[in-house]
Simulated assay, not measured.
Amino acid sequence: MGWNTLDDIDLKNKRVLTRVDINVPVEDGQVTDATRIERIAPTIADIRAKGGSPVLLAHFGRPKGQYVPEMSLKPLVPALEDAFGCSVVFVERPSRDFIDAQASDAVIMVENTRFSSMEEANDPQMAQFLATLGDVFCNDAFSAAHRAHASTTGVAHLLPNCAGRLMQAELQALEAALSAPKRPVGAVVGGAKVSTKLDLLENLVKKIDVLVIGGGMANTFLAAQGADLGASLQEADLHSTARDIMAAAADAGCTVILPVDGRVAREFAAHAAHEVVTLNADTSLEADQMVLDAGDASAAQIAQTFGTLKTLIWNGPLGAFEIPPFDTATVAAARAAADLTNSGDLVTVAGGGDTVAALNQAGVAESFTYISTAGGAFLEWMEGKELPGVAALMQ
């Protein structure tokens, strides 16, 4: 595995500097969705059960090295106390003397690390100061692992370190999905634009057996083969890139699945009048027609393909899932993947904001093997990039 967990380090009577992600939505000083806080609760509980005292480090928003009152972590304390079932000591200007004056199992919350410009610069001075606040460093913030900051990588090099429970679960799920997956392994990559996922597609076709392309991205691939898709969202300047990706997939023995039909409408609106049309290189839509979702035959083909796989990675919807009925293909495919996961035939790992929203909408998020709430870090991991926050934990 290459990294320590909370089980590998003696935490008794230790102050455990714990990097967490508690970037939660707040309205009128109240946390409106505590999911990210709830997900770190097992790490906090384990550190305390092992005799340690968690000293939490986190950022909130983008204060750009300035003190911004509305980005203080202080209003989050009640939500932290609810999730952890214990009191939380908040400290604006931490010192080791202050920390050592607290109870031996105290949970201490340090103010927003990004109030210092040294944080994002990964300034060695800040890393050294943070290291004085604890005896052990625990990183439980996979979602910040693609950033080389003082509180994610700098301090990790200065103290004995380990992954927290959430980071451990994330890394184990990702290793099972792409580093050493059960084959055949497939991926669904959807969303609006090819341009945002070029690195991802180029990396995946070399590592997986089947690639399902959906959403506006699929339009670009179909148009690159000669289809006239009317007013559909597509990137004309990326047609040659799309053909290159198809060629690379063919060379690597990766099957690419594009929609064979689509839901087509003349307006981008909920319940717009629509029809299902065949999609291929010869398709010619009228100037005001738009493909807004994969069709029923495509959804059936995708579901059938899932049945041939052992591992599935999912990033991005198959259509404009925010507006019905253009969520139909995404929901149908997600339910097919969930059924196979529930029956033990498929390992499913999904990530990215839109993806999580789409799976929640389909009512299947609970059925997937693992859902990552880390947007950028999940994408960079899928792109095959080294994540500094993970690399810093490597033994």
Rank of each mutant, 00 (worst) to 15 (best):
V276T: 13
E380F: 10
K310L: 15
L312Y: 02
G363R: 13
R263D: 08
V331F: 15
D327F: 09
L279E: 00
A294Y: 01
A336V: 04
A294W: 01
E286K: 13
V331P: 07
A338D: 01
T328R: 14
T308G: 13
N342I: 09
E386V: 15
Q304W: 14
G295Y: 00
E322G: 05
T369H: 06
T373M: 06
E366Y: 07
F326I: 00
C254L: 08
S284P: 02
G352T: 09
V331T: 15
Q304K: 14
Q301E: 13
H271L: 14
R335K: 15
A332Q: 13
S367L: 13
G344S: 09
A374N: 04
F368G: 06
F268Q: 12
A300T: 15
T330W: 01
A333P: 06
A252N: 09
Q304H: 15
L279W: 00
V256D: 05
V349E: 04
A329L: 02
H274T: 07
A334S: 11
A362C: 06
N280P: 04
D293V: 04
A265L: 04
V256L: 10
R263S: 12
I323K: 12
N360M: 07
M290P: 06
S298F: 00
H274I: 03
V356Y: 03
A336D: 02
A374D: 05
T355F: 07
N280L: 03
A273R: 09
N360Y: 03
G344K: 08
A269W: 06
K310Y: 13
A297I: 14
G262Q: 00
L285D: 02
W314S: 07
L318K: 00
L340M: 12
T311P: 03
N315I: 07
T255P: 02
A365P: 14
E275R: 11
E380L: 12
V264W: 00
A332W: 10
I313T: 08
E366D: 15
D282E: 14
M382Q: 12
A303C: 07
E275D: 09
A338C: 06
V347H: 09
W314P: 04
A332F: 11
L340T: 09
I371R: 13
A299H: 00
A287P: 10
A336Q: 01
E275Q: 09
Q301H: 12
V349L: 10
T373G: 10
A320D: 11
G319S: 07
T278I: 14
G319F: 05
A252F: 03
A338I: 01
V256E: 03
I302W: 05
E386D: 14
D282V: 05
A350H: 02
D354V: 12
L318C: 03
T311V: 02
A329Q: 01
D282G: 13
G307P: 02
N280R: 06
